[in-house]
Amino acid sequence: MAYFKKSPWIIHYDATSCNGCDIEVLAALTPLYDVERFGIINTGNPKHADIFLVTGAVNEQNKMVVKNIYDQMPEPKAVIAVGICACSGGIFRECYNVLGGPDSVIPVDIYVPGCAARPEAIIDGVVQALGILEKKHLARKEARKQHDRIAAN
């Protein structure tokens, strides 16, 4: 059963992005790209979200914020690093307050390159994340079944 393909909800957090990728994430929601027709909604509440979009690199001040949002999201969840800064630090890699991409704090599933990442690329990243969500969901289901089997014996 494809549960997540129907309506994945997204939460977006701007780590230290320059806004370029953030407005492209928002642009993906607006009439030209309009991902809402697929049931994709940008939510502000981590507990409602399936997919976590992080733009920009992580710094000392916001690494706990990124981790908090990730921890609050229900399982299964997928993380997408949007833009080159979120993939590797990009042009700001050498800055003294940049720790690296969000993968230095939380596990990242998909990397979307680009400066700024184009809306098409972001949508493609979200579509790939749906497959990963489905896999994680099935793996959890399998694990639960196995657990039940062991408990019954």
Binding site: S17, F92, C95
Partner: peptide, 14 residues
Amino acid sequence: IGFIHRGLEKLVEK
């Protein structure tokens, strides 16, 4: 503040 501070003014030296 400080959630987006990267320190890019220092990059002029690099």
